[in-house]
Amino acid sequence: MPDFEEIYSLYSPQIFRVCMGYVNDHDQAKDLTQETFIAVWRNLSSFRNESKISTWIFRIATNNCLRAIEKNKRVTKVELPFNLPAVHEETQEEKLAFLYNCIAELEEMDRIIISLVLEDLPQAEIATIIGLSAGNIRVKIHRIKEKLAIKFKDHGQFE
């Protein structure tokens, strides 16, 4: 049986980022990360290596995110100074907040998919997590990238 502490150390930053991409709220993302690892701990003994452990953990995390809608938690959209003056050099934090905000404007499933893409997960693994075919996921990722590109262009960022 895989060691819980090892799994946590390895995957918690990734899970946190995916949750953050979904909810765009630091505290809520931390709560969702915690809930994910509570479920991992509870079910670790029954994990039978039928899928990759990363697939299993990302499935738990994204299902947890989807479940958050039952708790009536809303996606945070922080107002950012769009169309920043050309002379202004954005900090890393501003760029990241802007990225989160653009993702927050997407639909729920798109937010999950793009977060997994940004985590560098292979498309086949993303397809297994979502429950769709690899072909469908490929098309979807292409569409999400287009949507994001429009948002970035509209706001004159990272051109």
Partner: peptide
């Protein structure tokens, strides 16, 4: 946004150092 790698680089700058450590998480889950 013509470069996904740029976005990935920004994505990875998210601070995760305030997450509980593995020992603390083990206490929480138990």
């Amino acid at each position: 946004m013509d470069n996904l790698n740029d976005l990935k680089a920004i994505w990875l700058t998210a601070k995760t150092d305030d997450l509980p450590g593995s020992k603390e998480m083990l206490r929480i889950v138990k």
